[in-house]
Amino acid sequence: MLLIDCPYCGKRPEIEFSYGGEAHVARPADPQALSDDAWAAYLYLRSNPKGRHAERWRHTHGCARFFNAVRDTVSDFFVTTYKVGETPPAEAWPRAAE
């Protein structure tokens, strides 16, 4: 069971949280303008990396707030957690700089 550092509440056990999938997959501003391919990419394509992964968690049984985390999917260690709207440090998640 992971130990997750909620940016609002501090470290809590995984069973208090819900996983929210990959982070920074923003809903397109105008979905109707997208091609089927582009829409399907939004719906279904995920980076699924072996390595650092930016992901969403929700502290469902705590503050109930969504937040983001960077976790290494090989070791399951968290690199950082941060609030929605914040950008992770570039050294934590190189893709943020792209």
Partner: peptide, 13 residues
Amino acid sequence: DAFVSYSQRGGLH
């Protein structure tokens, strides 16, 4: 387990 992982292990729960 709930989250993406390549660790080949999961939580006790």
